[in-house]
Write a protein that binds this DNA or RNA. Structure first.
Length: 510
RNA sequence: GCUCUGUUAGUAUAGUGGCUAGUACGCCUGGGUUUCAUCCAGGAAACAAGGGUUCGAUUCCCUUACAGAGUACCA
């Protein structure tokens, strides 16, 4: 009776997957890996009208980027394919027919189905959302109200029809949700949902239940928006007499301010991405920024997402993927929607960068430096990354913040240079420049020793010496320890920059 | 409108029938680095409201408010 855990992530390819979708996939993945089960990707493309080319590839790439790739799917392979619902079209019809046979569903003929008119007149009467339900169906033309021989005749004539589920009357549907515990609905509140559309495609409800059964899915992990249609799914399993999976409905991700769920608009408005990776709409050419391109590390993004609605109950916040798999449980997922917090997201990224070694960061940032046409040496790059990592939030800041290792100073902090410079000290400083240039051992420690000895001798203080060095060499007052920077830059470069910087300082003060 | 779901500092959350209600991000103050950042120390800041139940409720129950989702031949 204990089946192997199998779960699926089942997006529809109607556009780029946003972070809410990634989180759903993540929770599903973590749960599955913890249970040593199979995690598969199924594309729910039963609505041809909303299909967007490239969306499926986007989904796969996004999942790969964060490292939660499915082990079964259309392009991956597996024993339960095809994994694209449009390619399983032939399967659904027989199951819908089976339901009709068992008396759980019925035909409605679209040519003279008077539902559209009834619906409109009910709306006109002030009913906000009329339902094709177990009361109204008695007054509508369908295989329940039409004589049996006429139904046969119409079917034989090839008339267009849809199949609706026959919602029972006066029943209570109860099911257990892993996150919300028992949830119950009254069937009289539910309507006779369409199972097969007249274009021959199944609706989500039918396709989903049939596929989950055929693919031996044991746990349905999905967004909260599906909670209201879950009673229909439960009833469908019962009508088919199939073993029911367990359900877990995840809370939504909300916008950081105001009300409602997070949307692309919020990202544009508040200046943060809502998609994992860049996306260009093939029709409009409109571009949407992704976390990846914005400079986030996949592990940090994943860690942040995991904590949006879940927590381990301990004080630990930084989790590797393996630790997450170990610690995760659906029971500890919160019930209420979580607001996205970009500040905290940045903090996660910073933590991950800080915890990497210079060598690791060098590998990751090398392409960025090369893109800026900087000639990089691996060892030097590792040193630079190590020095800089504590003042960086995004990966792309590495080349920006350390450009002065590769090209001339673009801008001097003139205000500070002027303030910290006195022309009467020039002679003394010139001596220091000479001393430094004469150094055999151009290590950070030795430079520091020399500068300190010089200050001792001349009576000049830190404030009169260091800022001039720093600004001459890097252009700015901010940055890593200056003696280390000088050492890395090398004697020749430093000497040239010092000369130029001092010249500039004199100029500013005359 | 109806159905379902939810509500602890600005945000993410922990937690309990009786505690100074804990942690993290952010914010403020200070230390430190004679730069910046990291870091360290300290601070402000919350149980949505009203009724019950109870010796006692943030915690259990009800009502209200607010919020979210659903209410399609979309998923």
């Amino acid at each position: 009776m204990t089946r192997k855990v199998r779960t699926r992530f089942a997006p529809s390819p109607t556009g780029p997957l946003h972070m809410g979708g990634v989180r759903t996939a993540l929770y599903c993945y973590l749960f599955t890996k913890k249970m040593k089960g199979d995690f598969l990707l199924r594309i729910e493309d039963t609505d041809q009208g909303r299909f967007v080319p490239g969306a499926e590839e986007y989904i796969i790439e996004a999942l790969n980027w964060v490292g939660i790739s499915p082990s079964e799917g259309q392009s991956i392979g597996g024993d339960f394919g095809p994994y694209r619902q449009s390619e399983r079209k032939h399967l659904y019809k027989q199951y819908a027919d089976l339901l009709v046979e068992k008396g759980h569903a019925y035909y409605v003929f679209t040519s003279d189905d008077n539902w559209a008119e009834l619906r409109e007149s009910l709306i006109a009467q002030g009913k906000p959302s009329p339902k094709y339900d177990n009361v109204n169906r008695q007054y509508l033309k369908n295989s329940l109200t039409l004589p049996a021989d006429e139904v046969q005749k119409r079917l034989a004539a090839g008339e267009e029809y849809a199949i609706r589920y026959k919602m029972p009357r006066n029943e209570e549907v109860k099911f257990k949700d892993i996150i919300r515990d028992v949830v119950s609905f009254q069937t009289n509140q539910l309507d006779d949902k369409v199972l097969m559309k007249s274009d021959g495609m199944p609706t989500y409800h039918l396709a989903n239940v049939v596929d989950d059964h055929l693919m031996e899915i044991t746990h349905v992990v999905r967004g909260e928006e599906w909670l209201p249609s879950t009673p229909l799914h439960v009833l469908l399993y019962k009508s088919f007499e199939w073993e029911m999976p367990e359900f877990a409905h995840l809370p939504l991700i909300l916008k950081p301010d105001g009300k409602g769920k997070l949307s692309k608009r919020d990202g544009d408005r508040l200046g943060f991405p809502v998609f994992p990776i860049d996306w260009t709409n093939p029709e409009t050419g409109e571009e949407s920024k992704g976390f990846r391109e914005r400079g986030f590390m996949p592990e940090a993004f994943l860690n942040m997402l995991a904590f949006l609605g879940w927590n381990p109950g301990t004080e630990q916040e930084i989790f590797s993927k393996e630790e997450l798999i170990d610690t995760f449980s659906l029971e500890r997922v919160g019930k209420s929607g979580a607001r996205f917090d970009f500040e905290k997201t940045k903090w996660f990224n910073q933590q991950y960068i800080k915890n990497k070694t210079g060598e690791e960061l060098a590998v990751l940032t090398k392409p960025m430096f090369e893109k800026a046409a900087y000639k990089v040496d691996d060892k030097m790059l590792a040193t630079i990354c190590d020095m800089t990592k504590e003042r960086v939030t995004f990966m792309k800041e590495f080349p920006e913040m350390s450009y002065y290792f590769f090209e001339d100073i673009k801008a001097y902090d003139e205000k500070m240079l002027k303030k910290k410079w006195k022309n009467e000290n020039k002679e003394k400083i010139d001596v220091l420049v000479e001393q430094l240039y004469a150094l055999e051992d151009y290590s950070g420690e030795n430079i520091e020793k020399t500068v300190k000895a010089f200050m001792e001798e001349t009576g000049l203080g830190f404030g009169q010496v260091l800022p001039v060095l720093r600004i001459s060499v890097t252009g700015t007052m901010q940055g890593p320890p200056i003696f280390e920077v000088m050492s890395l830059l090398g004697k020749e470069t430093v000497n040239k920059r010092l000369a130029k910087g001092i010249e500039k300082a004199v100029e500013l003060n005359s």
